[in-house]
Design a protein around this nucleic acid. Structure first.
Length: 252
DNA sequence: AATAGATGCAACCGCCCCCAG
DNA sequence: CCTGGGGGCGGTTGCATCTAT
């Protein structure tokens, strides 16, 4: 359409980066920091599109990147985060220090998808493949200010801008409060003890009740004496029996 | 050893969102 | 409030490498 291109394509290199280009980019960012990507190539003496520089830096040259194979723990964390967030690779990457969204996206498509298929789990819905198709109602939890609303819908999506997250409820389970900071803490629990009967582990949330991975247990803790800040967590992210509380999952 | 097919991953493309003017 | 530019993101592509025949 009428939109101007992000850079002058005719005078930019494309394809694999050379060692010299990498060195120029690293040297420039070391000296000036990450700034205006559009003007960076010219300032750094690179015949590259600003977006290309940004991508190269973020996905490959950044000093804090953790290169190498993903660990089993990282695998499981990615799977669990993906079941909650869908293809929000940048959000998922935010929970894996040293990993980039592109890297995780590639890893998902090449390894984890197949791994889940081998386990008989649909990598999109995270449900058992042979489970009969059913009307999937989902729960939308709105977090506009302090006013929390829950409504039923029939799709799965994460809507960043509205700060609504739609989650497929596991077996009629109502999901607790979940905001983009990925904190689990229902706003108000007059009878927190009732949470005991409703708590599901992550395996159950995937329809794998009674599996060896099922470790339903309560991870809520009652608030302090003030009584107003009680927080109740769901054990979605138990990894190797170590509880990953959502309260540690702040985004950005 | 040669070749075809499969796989992995870096990089690109185009759309969307945010924000300054 | 509107608009355009810049940055960010997810999907896709293309090439290098690996594996099977």
């Amino acid at each position: 359409m009428g939109r101007s291109p992000c850079c002058e394509k005719a005078h930019t290199n494309k394809g694999a980066w050379t060692k010299e280009e990498d060195e120029r980019l690293i040297a420039y960012i070391r000296a000036h920091g990450e700034g205006c990507w559009r003007s960076l190539p010219k300032a750094a003496g690179l015949l590259r599109c600003g977006k290309s520089c940004r991508l190269r830096w973020i996905n490959y040259l950044r000093p804090d990147l953790k290169r190498g194979n993903f660990t089993e723990e990282e695998d499981e964390l990615i799977i669990k985060l993906h079941s909650l967030l869908g293809n929000k690779w940048s959000l998922i990457a935010g929970r894996l220090p040293g990993r980039t969204d592109n890297e995780i996206k590639n890893y998902w498509n090449t390894h984890i998808r197949r791994k889940l298929l081998n386990r008989g789990i649909d990598p999109v819905s995270h449900r058992p493949i042979n489970e009969p198709a059913q009307e999937t109602a989902s729960t939308t939890i709105s977090f506009s200010a302090n006013d929390v609303k829950i409504e039923e819908k029939s799709s799965m999506a994460v809507e960043d801008d509205t700060k609504n997250i739609e989650i497929e409820p596991p077996n009629e389970e109502r999901c607790p409060d979940l905001n983009l900071e990925l904190r689990i803490s229902p706003p108000y629990q007059p009878h927190p003890e009732k949470m005991v009967a409703k708590s599901l582990c992550f395996a159950c949330s995937l329809g794998l009740q009674n599996s060896k991975d099922c470790h339903c247990k309560i991870v809520y803790n009652i608030g302090t004496s003030s009584g107003n800040n009680s927080s109740v967590g769901y054990d979605f992210l138990t990894i190797n029996n170590r509880i990953l509380d959502y309260r540690s999952l702040e985004m950005k």
